[in-house]
Amino acid sequence: MLSQMGWAQTDYDLAKLESLALQSSRAVLAGRSAVDAARAAVNTAAAFPNPELEYLSGSQRARGVGGNLGDARSVALTQPLDMPWVRSSRIGAAEAGLEATSAANRGFEAEVLARLRLRYYEVLRREAEQRNAREDLASMESVRSRIALRVETGEAARFELIKADTELLNAQKAAQVAGFRVEQARSLLRQAVGNELPPTFSLAGRLSSVPDLPSLEILRKEVETGSPDLARARAELVRAERQLDLERRQRWPNLAVKASMDEDPDVRANKLGVVMSIPLWDRRSGPVGEASAHLTRARYELEAQQFSQQKQLEVAYQQYEIAQAQVNALESGIVRQAEEALKIAAAAYRFGERGFIEVLDAQRVYRAARVELIAARYELAAAWVEIERLRATPGGKQ
């Protein structure tokens, strides 16, 4: 059935999922269309004004004796002049708008990739939890069968079998819940990627395979120079400066060249002159004040964005270091020791040196240690995802 739908059986790694999402996401494509619109706005700002052609036709009648009768025509051509000082500011504002839109689009794509990466690691986390739950269930079934045999032979009290049945039910419930969480995480990942990801996909990757990060100082420099949010704020500041400059220069008189021909039955007159708009009543105080306020706001927003980006980076890097320390501690000692304690307790129970309750306690400690390890690995991946979002790492690259 999958072959009929055109879905190939393949394993998807993170880079392949990112490339697929960026190619198929309608929201990403809409953002790129906004960049195309901003690029077209630059062409609009660079366009020269069109000439104006005026044609008048009528009849001429004499009011006195001896006047000539006939048709009268008038043709006029007016070409507004695009003043260089106004043109440069207008184009500069449009180009800054293009930079701001491009940076905003890069920031949106970074957000899309961050959501996708979190969903990817969420699936790996839930799959790891499901594997552990199935191992716990298989182990509990084995222990329960041994206890049932001992109860039948009279070597153990029936209370131990009741306790084992209770623990087996809990293990079955945990395995069932883990399966539901896997399906939910897979659905959310498919939602983040798009319909191009088949429902029966499989992931090529491990939760423990989180890429390393450079030092905090290197990350600070990368965020300062490459953050799309900062790039957008800087472009908005430039656009506000250009817009203020444009509004101020539009106070100056505008010029247009006008050529006309007037023809009546007696005379044909050809004229060439200049049309000047005199800024007498409207000194554009409103647009200038508005542009000045936008410039002030852009400066404050840039400063706030710089402070916010640095603090977000510091918090994410601290979380990365904390999660990394937790993972190292759990992998190097805690989980291993809990596993050894469980093996010792199980062996002692088989030889009658320990009770079943001690085996259950050791199993709970081992289960809790593995759950904590999975959670720490996911927190490490989440911190990495947040830092990559701030760095705006392109899709398909790690």
Rank of each mutant, 00 (worst) to 15 (best):
V365S: 12
A45C: 08
S277E: 12
A40T: 08
F356L: 15
R131P: 00
L81I: 15
L213I: 07
R251F: 03
S292G: 08
G352M: 05
G289Q: 13
L81D: 02
R297V: 15
R354Q: 07
P253I: 08
L188W: 06
E247R: 11
R61Y: 14
D71Y: 13
Q243S: 10
N270M: 12
S89T: 15
I357G: 07
A382F: 06
E314W: 02
S308R: 15
E263L: 09
S277M: 08
G66H: 05
E263I: 13
I387W: 09
Q9H: 06
S215M: 04
K258N: 09
V35Y: 02
S187Y: 13
Q319D: 15
Y320I: 03
V385H: 06
G64Y: 11
Q130A: 12
R150V: 07
P84L: 03
V257H: 08
R181P: 00
V210R: 00
G67F: 05
A138E: 10
G179Y: 00
S57V: 13
L203R: 07
Y55M: 11
P84N: 05
A148E: 12
S3D: 11
S292P: 02
K221G: 10
P394F: 02
L169W: 06
A383M: 04
R126K: 09
R39D: 11
T225H: 13
D262M: 07
T225Y: 09
N328Q: 14
L169N: 09
L244M: 12
L168S: 08
E372V: 00
R150G: 10
V151S: 02
L124V: 12
V288A: 06
L77D: 01
S24W: 06
P199Y: 05
R377M: 10
L137K: 01
V365Q: 14
S260H: 03
G97S: 12
L360E: 08
L124H: 11
V143K: 02
A304V: 05
A304F: 05
V335N: 11
A47I: 13
L20P: 00
R134Q: 05
A96R: 02
A47C: 08
Q319V: 12
F307G: 01
I218L: 15
L149Q: 14
G67E: 04
R242E: 12
D82G: 05
E127Y: 04
G205A: 05
R242N: 12
A376K: 03
R186Q: 11
E303H: 03
A375N: 14
E372C: 01
Q324R: 15
G226L: 03
A38N: 02
W252E: 09
A381K: 08
D266V: 15
G289W: 04
S24V: 01
A175T: 00
A37Y: 07
E379I: 02
A175G: 00
T200A: 08
